[in-house]
């Protein structure tokens, strides 16, 4: 019997109460993604604050978890990630805690909560399921999204796109961007961390002269596709989803190299309440089933060891993202100030 199969069998027995093992013992060394079949049933009450995003797909995941665990009473509060972050911080200041879990679409929001010391430490074998660069002691990234440069394929080829994001202002290409968009602001925060405020301000100023603003990044990608601009700045999945709906779309993706232009940001979850139940809920999100589902349906990047993205999705080993502690993306206020100072916002 292979080790992984053996572990799953043990887990199934433990879940059935046949062995006096707890989940930490069962999953002491999960080198790869765990199947939902190996997880214990969830029993008890939890309140989840759920940041809005990805249409109904996160909701589908939650419903599937609820269906599988009839003895779990899950209360959900939904809202924009930024609002829920503020609510958690305000509640903590008032000495109350309403949320047991916070699933945010942006790791910067997670960083604000962890920086306030509100997140509980997660079991090492839980975070150990994640790829090395996505292991944090008090939160778990769920899926990744890569910053990319979508380009119009009728005008350009990938080799014509600079592999250095800082070189973009020196090109003749017209650019689409969405500065009011949270993903863009996290990217600028990443640039501030890597390059410093002065260089970032110069880059924004130079880009602002040639960039066309859009409300959202799907709008950016669509503008690239119809040739309104040559290239854009956007998360990877907008292009992939557009191509899914329009296979002959005139757009493809280019990646920069080891800079903020190919930053891998992540959605993530943290527990505000101690105990096995919140941690076990998080385990469900790291199962190979959930990771594969979100990769296939939402084009998000799986972050758990051993879960391969479906064909067509960029693989992390084929790009060279910068090494940034994602929770540092919480440092958003100076980013907004800087963008306002240079007239981008």
């Amino acid at each position: 019997m292979q080790r992984r199969t053996f572990i799953q069998s043990l887990a199934a027995l433990a879940a059935a109460g046949a062995l006096p093992l707890n989940i930490s013992q069962v999953l002491a060394d999960p080198a790869n993604a765990v199947s939902v079949e190996a997880l214990p049933r969830l029993e008890g009450e939890l309140t989840l604050y759920l940041g809005r995003g990805e249409g109904g797909l996160y909701e589908n995941v939650i419903k599937a978890i609820e269906d599988r665990n009839p003895d779990l009473k899950l209360r959900i509060r939904r809202g924009p990630t930024a609002s829920l972050t503020n609510a958690i911080l305000a509640e903590a200041k008032a000495g109350v805690r309403r949320a047991d879990l916070f699933w945010a679409v942006d790791s910067g929001a997670v960083g604000m909560v962890t920086a306030a010391g509100l997140a509980q430490a997660l079991p090492a074998e839980l975070t150990g399921q994640l790829r090395d660069e996505f292991r944090f002691p008090d939160w778990a990234p769920i899926t990744g999204r890569i910053r990319t440069i979508p380009f119009n394929t009728e005008r350009l080829t990938a080799d014509k796109i600079p592999n250095d994001i800082m070189a973009l202002p020196d090109t003749d290409y017209s650019v689409g961007w969405a500065p009011a968009y949270a993903a863009f602001q996290s990217f600028v925060t990443g640039m501030r961390i890597l390059e410093g405020d002065k260089v970032t301000a110069e880059w924004l100023t130079a880009m602002n002269r040639k960039a066309k603003k859009f409300a959202g990044e799907l709008g950016v990608v669509m503008a690239v596709e119809r040739g309104e601009v040559d290239i854009g700045l956007a998360n990877h999945y907008y292009t992939l989803r557009l191509k899914a709906g329009k296979p002959d779309a005139n757009v493809d993706l280019a990646f920069t190299n080891n800079d903020a232009g190919c930053l891998v940001n992540a959605s993530g979850i943290l527990a505000l309440k101690e105990g096995e139940l919140p941690a076990n809920f998080i385990r469900y999100l790291l199962t190979k089933e959930v990771q594969s589902y979100l990769a296939e349906e939402a084009c998000e990047i799986p972050l758990v060891n051993g879960v391969l993205p479906p064909e067509g999705l960029p693989r992390l080993k084929t790009i060279n993202p910068p090494q940034i502690d994602l929770t540092r993306l919480a440092d958003l206020r100076p980013t907004i100030d800087l963008m306002r100072d240079v007239g981008v916002l």
Binding site: R52, G53, E54, G55, G56, L57, A215, G216, L218, G219, M222, R226, Y237, Y238, R241, L242, A244, G245, K246, A249, A298
Partner: peptide
């Protein structure tokens, strides 16, 4: 904005119109 990512893979022209 939370819906269009899902919708665009079904009907890109419709999303473009609504955008």
């Amino acid at each position: 904005e939370g819906v269009e990512g899902e919708l665009i893979s079904l009907d890109a022209d419709l999303v473009e119109d609504l955008e």
